[in-house]
């Protein structure tokens, strides 16, 4: 009996903790929203963060995009050849990438590569009193440290997702056309004919914008609330990757249902 009650109590506590977590993140988001426009008064800070988060993530994004494209090309060819429809390989690869895999996989990789780094950096700055030092120098850490990092991530994710898709489509071309002998002009031609600028490319872009915002928010929030201990920082970076990944996948389902469902 006691065990049952205890587990109910534990469940209740974790629900309350979760609610509190969500609430404090919402308050943090409001506080952050206030400084997002003023942050642009120092565009250099933001550019630096786009470099740190985005440009330095290029290698992993491009390599991953290439491999995903190669795999899509292979698998797609096998399936489509059953229906004698290999000339549709291009559009299949392109739609998979632009609508889904580009935004989602790029966002997941970004959360692991750059989101965790943002969290760790902010947490360490907090632990070593650098944020307090900024405050005491009458410099708002929200504008100077948090805001630019939010923008850096927010701007990088959609751009990285676009590059991921682009490289993936080229990867599909290499395996499909160059190796397996699909007709090159129909690979590109079908993409050209069947892909919609607004529905497909725009939908993917909106998705990756949303993913960028979510990852950016989680990364800076977890950094700011990290406990100033070694295990606290470890927990914060882990939390960033776990929460970001779940949020991206969950959000992807919801957005897909709205955009492409029925």
């Amino acid at each position: 009996m006691n065990a049952v009650l205890n587990s109910i109590a534990r469940l209740g506590r974790s629900v309350l903790d979760g609610a509190q977590h969500a609430g404090s993140m919402a308050l943090f988001a409001i506080e952050l929203a206030w400084v997002l426009i003023p942050t642009w008064s120092r565009p250099r800070d933001i550019l630096q963060q786009v470099y740190a988060a985005g440009v330095l993530s290029l290698v992993i994004i491009l390599v991953a995009g290439g491999f995903v494209g190669l795999v899509l090309g292979l698998q797609g060819y096998n399936i489509l050849s059953n229906f004698n429809a290999t000339e549709s390989l291009g559009v299949m690869v392109a739609l998979s990438l632009v609508r889904e895999l580009g935004p989602v996989v790029a966002a997941l990789l970004f959360a692991g590569r750059a989101g965790s780094a943002i969290t760790a950096e902010i947490a360490l700055m907090k632990t070593t009193e650098q944020l307090a030092a900024l405050e005491m120098m009458a410099v708002d850490p929200m504008r100077r440290v948090i805001g630019p990092r939010f923008w850096g991530a927010m701007i990088s994710v959609p751009l990285l997702a676009a590059m991921f898709s682009l490289v993936g489509i080229v990867g599909g071309y290499l395996i499909g056309v160059v190796v397996l002998g699909v007709d090159g002009s129909s690979y590109w031609g079908q993409i050209h004919e069947q892909m919609e600028a607004w529905d497909d490319v725009g939908g993917g872009a909106i998705k990756s914008l949303a993913f960028g915002a979510v990852i950016a928010l989680i990364s800076v929030y977890e950094g700011c609330r990290a406990e100033p201990t070694a295990s606290g920082m470890a927990r914060a970076t882990t939390q960033t990757v776990v929460l970001s990944s779940l949020a991206v996948l969950g959000l992807d389902f919801v957005m897909t249902a709205f955009m492409f469902g029925a």
């Binding site: 070593t128 009193e129 650098q130 307090a132 030092a133 005491m136 009458a138």
Partner: peptide, 19 residues
């Protein structure tokens, strides 16, 4: 508060230099 802080200097325990 920020105007006041501009008139204060703080030496933090571990320096808190920007690394």
């Amino acid at each position: 508060l920020y105007a006041l802080r501009r008139r204060m200097g703080v030496l933090f325990q571990n320096g808190a230099l920007f690394t």
